[in-house]
């Protein structure tokens, strides 16, 4: 394990504290895995999982703020994403493999119990972790994801693994990303998020989406022991908020939160994301009862 340490100034909208960022280059299944590690190493570990085709950079504006609020924020790049090398066997189409990868990251960093936050495939992986990690997971915040297989065309996505089948990929990523960003987000921010999302490997993105379509953990929901909150944005065209609400009701300590004016990427869209996550986690850890909230 190689560990780089640097000190950075938060560029987030709310926090200005100087925050320590450590970067780990782990070796997992024979390949380098890149992991950001923000904040005090004795603080509550918070695992932050990114969306399909993207990387930990999606948390760049909020990780320092979360660290300032008392979390040790662990932000891995899944295999083939960001600065992590691709899996040895090729692009991953099983989100369960990413869940195992995330637990291995925590093992290598000697982290036992943790809070998980994830979005889209990261949200579904968060639910998966809530099922499989047992007592290790303290609380789970799954955003923009339900437990059942996502509504995508597996056949079409598989066809588009061949590059000749997928023209204007960057254009479509740009416009498609913009289309699922919430109405509360400024035009400048919307364009920046969409532009950043174009930094993807299309083969990896498509493989992730195949995993999104196939991965169904509905049967495991009643077995989730940790308090869990499922979060859906009002302007998220990728998910069915009512289905997510039903999934939350199937989790013994589950709750549901609806975000007006927010789309598919709360951690990139919400200016108060860190404080909101902190509030969710505190609420989850303090409450045994399922609740439903709408954020004003």
């Amino acid at each position: 394990m190689t560990t780089l340490t640097e000190t950075t100034q938060s560029t987030g909208p709310t926090a200005s504290a100087v925050t320590t960022l450590r970067a780990h280059q782990l070796v997992i299944d024979g390949r380098f895995a890149f992991v950001e590690d923000w904040g005090d190493i004795h603080a509550t570990p918070l695992l932050a999982l990114h969306t399909a085709g993207q990387s930990g950079v999606q948390y760049a504006h909020v990780a320092a703020d979360l660290a300032a609020l008392g979390y040790r924020v662990i932000v891995p790049d899944f295999p083939g994403h960001g600065r992590s090398e691709p899996a040895a066997h090729g692009p991953v189409t099983d989100l369960g493999e990413y869940a195992r990868f995330a637990l291995t990251v925590l093992d290598q960093l000697d982290i036992d119990r943790f809070v998980a936050v994830g979005c889209s495939i990261g949200g579904k992986i968060t639910i998966d972790l809530a099922v499989r990690a047992g007592s290790r997971i303290r609380a789970a915040v799954a955003m923009a994801a339900g437990a059942s297989g996502g509504h995508v065309s597996i056949r079409g996505l598989t066809r588009e693994l061949n590059d000749i089948s997928t023209p204007s990929r960057s254009d479509r990523t740009y416009w498609g990303t913009r289309a699922v960003i919430g109405s509360a987000v400024s035009e400048e921010r919307r364009s920046l998020i969409a532009r950043m999302h174009c930094r993807e490997d299309p083969i990896i993105s498509n493989s992730d989406l195949i995993g999104w379509g196939r991965h169904d953990i509905t049967a495991g929901l009643p077995d989730i022991a940790c308090p869990t909150i499922l979060v859906a944005g009002e302007d998220d065209l990728w998910i069915d908020a009512e289905a997510v609400r039903r999934d939350a009701a199937s989790i013994p300590r589950g709750s549901f939160t609806f975000l007006p004016g927010i789309g598919h990427y709360p951690m990139e869209e919400m200016t108060d994301f860190a404080s909101q996550v902190d509030a969710w986690v505190r609420t989850l850890e303090a409450s045994d009862e399922g609740t439903e909230t709408t954020r004003s």
Binding site: P167, S168, D171, R172, W175
Partner: peptide, 12 residues
Amino acid sequence: GYEYLRMTSALI
């Protein structure tokens, strides 16, 4: 379908 996707920005 190929040309439709290729012309996404033109259609917009």
